[in-house]
Design a protein around this nucleic acid. Structure first.
Length: 281
DNA sequence: AATATCCTCAACCGCCTTGGT
DNA sequence: GACCAAGGCGGTTGAGGATAT
């Protein structure tokens, strides 16, 4: 079921990986990491392109990768997330430890796609909950419809994190999208369920402080920092996640995979962060 | 048993985003 | 702002196993 090994005219090997190649790649990455996939194959003694090495590592050789059938629980997660997100395989993979985006994508197409009636897939949550409630906000910033939809998707997905993720540590369960001025926001009333938050999101005024963060409850930020993730499909909307210390030493992938969502802030692009990943000390 | 068709999934490809200059 | 290199993502391909005829 694997493509036969072959060589490009430039000598790059393609097709199925041999055990020897796997061993070389595994040993190299475990010893030196993978800061530069382009250079890695040369340094590791592999006749592969960097992309091929990355793919092999991410989909097959990474530690703790699961092999074999998906559990019912995993299936449920995939179906649920596909309902909310559509074909966002990488995000789904972040929620399913040990599964790669490629694996989830394949499994969806081969096992799950035909089980779901078409009108039940993709964005139904938005139709029910979000559209049509937008009001102008004091900052004058306007999200377009597509941005509203994408933010709503994200909020909906994140909402599913709350109950289980709060069990590991004591993250600050603060949702800070209320108030027109950050001096007069009552921090005691910002613990609605995420669905309540999502529901009211477009009715609430934004609060932009000097940093461009909607809320600036600095005292609520975890002492270990803040991870700011640029979500490209939001086209200018940033989500700020409060992260756990244990996750901070890992890669962004590890963070997303292991994160317990303590708090979420939403900001807008422009003169806001100027970068995708920002750590506050 | 032989052949055709379908199914699965590892790997590839092209495009997009990001970061550096 | 333009350009380039690199990484990441989602769609597609194709070899080989499974099943049907």
């Amino acid at each position: 079921m694997v493509r036969a090994p072959r060589f490009d005219k430039d000598g790059t090997k393609k097709g199925a990986w041999s055990e020897e190649e796997d061993n070389k790649l595994r040993a190299f990455v475990q010893k030196y990491g993978h800061r530069n996939w382009r250079q890695l194959p040369t340094l590791a003694g592999l006749s592969r392109c960097g992309k091929s090495c990355r793919l092999r590592w991410m989909n097959y050789l990474r530690p703790n990768m699961k092999r074999g059938n998906f559990t019912q629980e995993e299936e449920d997660v995939i179906v649920d997330l596909h309902n909310k997100l559509g074909n966002k395989w990488a995000i789904m993979a972040a929620k399913l430890p040990g599964r790669s985006d490629n694996e989830i994508k394949n499994y969806w197409h081969t096992h799950l796609k035909n089980r779901i009636p078409k009108d039940e897939t993709h964005h139904h949550v938005l139709k029910n909950k979000q559209i049509g409630s937008l009001k102008p906000n004091p900052t004058g910033f306007q999200f377009n419809l597509e941005q509203q939809q994408e933010v709503a998707i994200l909020l909906t997905v994140l909402s599913s994190e709350l109950p289980s993720s709060s069990s590991t540590t004591e993250p600050s369960p603060c949702w800070s999208l209320t108030g027109s001025n950050h001096d007069d926001v009552d921090s005691t009333k910002i613990t609605p369920s995420f669905f309540e938050l999502a529901e009211s999101f477009w009715n609430e005024p934004f609060l932009l402080d000097n940093d461009g963060i909607i809320s600036s409850y600095d005292n609520m930020l975890s002492p270990i920092g803040i991870l700011v993730i640029s979500v490209e499909f939001l086209q200018g909307v940033y989500v700020v996640l409060d992260i756990e210390e244990s996750a901070r030493t890992g890669s962004v992938d590890d963070l997303v995979e292991g994160v317990g969502f303590g708090a979420v802030w939403i900001g807008v692009e422009g003169d806001v962060f100027g970068g995708d990943v920002v750590a506050f000390g």
